[in-house]
Design a protein around this nucleic acid. Structure first.
Lengths: 181, 181
DNA sequence: ACCTGAACACCGTTCAAGT
DNA sequence: ACCTGAACACCGTTCAAGT
């Protein structure tokens, strides 16, 4: 990548982070380009879709979550491992209001730039769930897809100003019933 | 209301229903006016906000739900009454994809045209929940606001194409843990 | 009273023209 | 290679002008 292109890319990402943190996942791309002092086409060149932009914004979080899932799978008690990992996942989704909707849509859309990352998250969760189930500490009538859906629902709660304050409590309500330890 | 105005109102509502059933709660108002062969200002005259339009579209459902809640409160077993009423509420919300987001926002916004209706729904649910709790068949660590939030989360699941098929199952998972019958 | 549609200030997305 | 911004086809919302 040419030096000026690299500079634009980094600047764009930094500005997008600021804007998206305050305006959420459907922030105006035009506004981002404007604040980054860059032509709109430059934004589209670096991030052909909104999903590509958010995948870049969440890159670190996704990588960390994947590593954490692997680490937790061997050390912690299976129920604690699952719940604490899910808590982090939901928190990451809540960083960008509305991103969870893009993420769930990405699951069934292989052409989405978020598809791979979301597949990884889903698989990591499914593994932690399977271990908890195998050890008899999680109910067995849900699977990895159900778990991802529940994460989506809880992240959505955290995105709604009117409901956000209940999100943590409802997380406990729901997972206390899924785990039977 | 003048005869021509009444005709416009009814027509607008009918067209809006069709469009919203297929496009969801953020259907284009311009498109609705266009399909109703009416000026955009006429739509705004009859329905000053999107919320006002959807409150009108959901009027019957809201009234029916309120009546059902009252009827169920005296005949059915408290746990069955609660769950079956909630199922209908979620189904109504799922009629218009995305309407649940407007509804939850309306709770904390007294100026929303959906505020009253949502308050009524929340109160109806809270009453059924309180009865179930009083009779010892529902866990007591959630309140009416939590219940409404759970309904929102489940309705949101039903709105997501990638998750909708799991919504019914997760409804059961969640409420089987809230009711202890 | 009621209706119309132009006007305004925004979007997302594309692409010819520039360096 | 990369960048720019005008162009296009849309929005929601308001409001002067018409009947």
């Amino acid at each position: 990548m040419r030096a000026d292109a690299k500079r634009n890319y980094d600047n764009l990402l930094a500005v997008a982070r600021d804007v998206a943190l305050e305006q959420g996942a459907d922030a105006s791309l035009r506004d981002i380009a404007r604040r980054a002092d860059v032509g709109l086409g430059t934004l589209y060149r670096h991030f052909p879709t909104r999903e590509a932009l958010f995948d870049a914004l969440l890159r670190e979080s996704f990588d960390t979550l994947k590593a954490q899932a692997e680490a937790l799978a061997s050390v912690e008690a299976p129920d604690k491992a699952l719940v604490s990992w899910l808590r982090v996942l939901v928190a990451c989704a809540n960083d960008y209001r509305g991103i969870i909707t893009l993420m769930v849509a990405a699951i069934e859309d292989p052409s989405s730039a978020l598809h791979a990352s979301c597949g990884t998250m889903k698989a990591s969760g499914a593994r932690l769930l399977a271990r908890a189930q195998a050890e008899g500490v999680a109910r067995t009538d849900i699977d990895g897809a159900d778990l991802f859906a529940l994460v989506g629902a809880l992240a959505w709660l955290g995105d709604q100003p009117a409901l956000a304050k209940r999100a943590d409590h409802l997380f406990d309500v729901i997972f206390s019933s899924i785990l039977k330890s």
